[in-house]
Design a protein around this nucleic acid. Structure first.
Lengths: 211, 211
DNA sequence: ACCTGAACACCGTTCAAGT
DNA sequence: ACCTGAACACCGTTCAAGT
């Protein structure tokens, strides 16, 4: 809106550009890869220029978080409440699995995007339709969220690059415990984490909202 | 063992002292608070002196991790297999809740302590007693572990210091979603996360090992 | 008004030097 | 043999200066 007034220097940096650059970096290299200096280099400015648009690094991260949360699909629109709840948490898991760095931020406990916070009241209503009061519904929500959060927290360990080092540690464990190491590795390798996740989520929904 | 040979400088730094100092720091200030330079200051040496005893910071963290894992209680010794499995994961949750920084390390996916890895074969045997084969047992183990991991990942958010900022974001969420903000906050505040955790864990164990 | 330069107080790590 | 000093390539952030 504000056109060049003629006085002072012409603005070329915008908050939007800063957030977009930050998002590109954090999606590519994770939270540890996000540095003020690197964002600045990407937008062609000095590090200090960013401070005109974001208060500090924490606020930049919150802004990126909101940007990602804007891409969250809507929860399932119709059907059995149980199915809608299941579908919502499955959607959340799938979406966050594509933005795993978000879990690092949520884990700190101080930040979450308001857009994502809207899922909580949505779920209260669905559980309400199944006869749970708000107290019980909040408990059920926490239970399902923890399961999603745990699954997501485990995903980095499924990175093929880390497989070798994990199996090595596993062999050491098996040897010390005096158990058959091949048996342990076979059991560990066969895990189909996505199928197991969906199965577990289904079991939890069923136990929380009995019919 | 190696007494002073008379040649060279007298050794005053040991790996044990380095790991102990590192542990003190990480337990007090978390993974972010652990720096080579601070450990060095605590043991009265220069930063570079540590590199004679640990290869790098990652190896120091692994050594501290093992040190903590050595303190893990043994899993329950007798009783119904279902109860023993429940008791083991409850023990794990309780122990790790007192060493929350460990979750940050586990989440990276490359490190875990062999001592803790012994819990996996132990659980395979218990699930075996309930009629599950190794494949099914590994799935069940993953499911329960994710739930523990999710609960632990949520714990930082229960820090009273963060409560105010979380409630603020929650109000924004409620306002945007067009729902009663008092209702949402009431439901959120009433959460007894320990009771809910134990209840959810019990439900999962029951669904995974049907009688 | 907006951006920059220089500086401060930090990091992990390497490499040559001291005793 | 063991430890140190100086240096390198990084951080986030502040404050005064330039245009």
């Amino acid at each position: 809106m504000s056109t060049d007034s003629g006085r002072g220097r012409r603005q070329f940096l915008t908050r939007k550009a800063v957030v977009a650059a930050g998002r590109r970096i954090v999606e590519a290299d994770g939270v540890d890869g996000l540095t003020i200096r690197r964002v600045a280099a990407d937008v062609g400015a000095t590090p200090m220029a960013l401070y005109r648009h974001v208060a500090d690094k924490r606020q930049l991260l919150l802004a990126i978080l909101e940007d990602v949360a804007d891409g969250l699909p809507d929860p399932p629109g119709d059907g059995d409440p149980r199915e809608r709840i299941f579908g919502m948490f499955l959607m959340l898991d799938t979406y966050l699995a594509r933005h795993l760095w978000v879990v690092d931020v949520l884990r700190k406990g101080e930040l979450f995007a308001p857009r994502a916070g809207a899922l909580f009241p949505w779920a209260l209503d669905r559980f309400g339709e199944l006869g749970l009061d708000d107290r019980q519904a909040a408990d059920a929500y926490a239970t399902l969220w923890w399961f999603v959060l745990g699954h997501l927290s485990f995903l980095p360990a499924t990175d093929p690059d880390l497989f070798a080092s994990r199996e090595e540690l596993m062999k050491v464990s098996a040897a010390r415990a005096g158990v058959d190491e091949e048996r342990v590795l076979r059991a560990y390798r066969g895990l189909d984490h996505q199928a197991v996740f969906e199965h577990g989520l289904r079991a939890l929904v069923a136990s929380l909202a009995p019919s």
